[in-house]
Design a protein around this nucleic acid. Sequence first.
DNA 1: ACTTTGAGTGTACGCATGTTCACTGATTTC
DNA 2: GAAATCAGTGAACATGCGTACACTCAAAGT
Lengths: 210, 210
Amino acid sequence: MSESAQSAPRQAQKERTRQAILASALELSQEQGFAQVSLRQVSRHAGVVPTAFYRHFESMDQLGLALVEQSFSTLRRMIRDAQRDPQVFDNIIDAAADVLVEAVKQSKAHFAFVARERVGGPEVVRTAIRHELDLFVSELAVVLARLPNIENWSSDDVQMVSRLFVRNMVSNAEEVVEMPDGRPDLEEQIKEGARRQMRLIVVGFRDWRS
Amino acid sequence: MSESAQSAPRQAQKERTRQAILASALELSQEQGFAQVSLRQVSRHAGVVPTAFYRHFESMDQLGLALVEQSFSTLRRMIRDAQRDPQVFDNIIDAAADVLVEAVKQSKAHFAFVARERVGGPEVVRTAIRHELDLFVSELAVVLARLPNIENWSSDDVQMVSRLFVRNMVSNAEEVVEMPDGRPDLEEQIKEGARRQMRLIVVGFRDWRS
DNA sequence: ACTTTGAGTGTACGCATGTTCACTGATTTC
DNA sequence: GAAATCAGTGAACATGCGTACACTCAAAGT
């Protein structure tokens, strides 16, 4: 390597290439789905020869798993931030809707990846995503269980609400992702939809348990 | 053609081959997703030489669209039958849960196809599925609007409930599809989950509108 | 009877793919 | 400053792909 970053320490340059490969795979996946992206396409797009790919990932499957990890670390940061937000205690629903739409907007590509590959990806990737989503449901349940109106619910009920919330999140992420660019009005509409659906879940639950 | 069906009338034999191609594509899609299935794989599996494929479909995309059509005709038959069932008037929710699980079990492959290719398929297929699902939401809304407890709701509300029901149907179809074979206990669990979620939607809606 | 039609065949082509191997040369290690 | 390391190179391969083309030979049309 002599032109793009001459004096980069070796490890840093390697990491940069690794990120270029990850970013390329993520971008190419958006157009055709991860499973249709070839090792050569990714390498080409990352500005690297196909054989160099193997210095970073054993196979395309491993690349896929790395993308799953990256995507969920984004998601986890989102829930951790939301937990610190005092507004969440007053009004989970509006907060969640805001956070969701904002997070999806910020890292659209990662959400798109999860939504798409959850059902459409190679089997190892699908399995990994399912596992991460299950974990995420449990983590969200912990957050929800601390909330004022919920603290005396059974843990099964909390788990179910959490599952419904996550399912909703995935559905709405799908919608935001499939949304044509430059239509912020639609985005507001989706956010409003998400809000109403979450309210529905909470209201329905409260009434049914009484 | 001389061995497999010597004296078949020409048109009938053609139709039979066409169905073999459709069935092959459906089966192969389950393992790898439709987009990874090649024209040659389908032809091979259908017992036909690759070039013969073109006598039936212009391209793999067209095959995909034919599968979408086939899948939704299954779905439509299901809703039409359910509409005749008097039980539906008494208890939409249990009826819907039964019908859903039963229908999915009967034509698992078609539901799997829709659930998978809705987000993971080639763009033309995705678009077609979205369109069909939108239509289906509207059709279901018509059915729902006739129901006793719903007849005085606004049509917007009915449309939204219908959308939530269909979203739920897709989600649950995904679960049934991803379900390991020979575990009827899980199936009952999914059915119960679907029932609870639909009840949630109806209860939530009723209470919020008052 | 004889001609036309058209579903299915077989060969052949150019192209993209995943993986192999021996290599280069700057950075790191000593 | 010599030696070792290792990210990235470039040529070569076998394989599977979509499609073009000329073909066969029963069934359908006359």
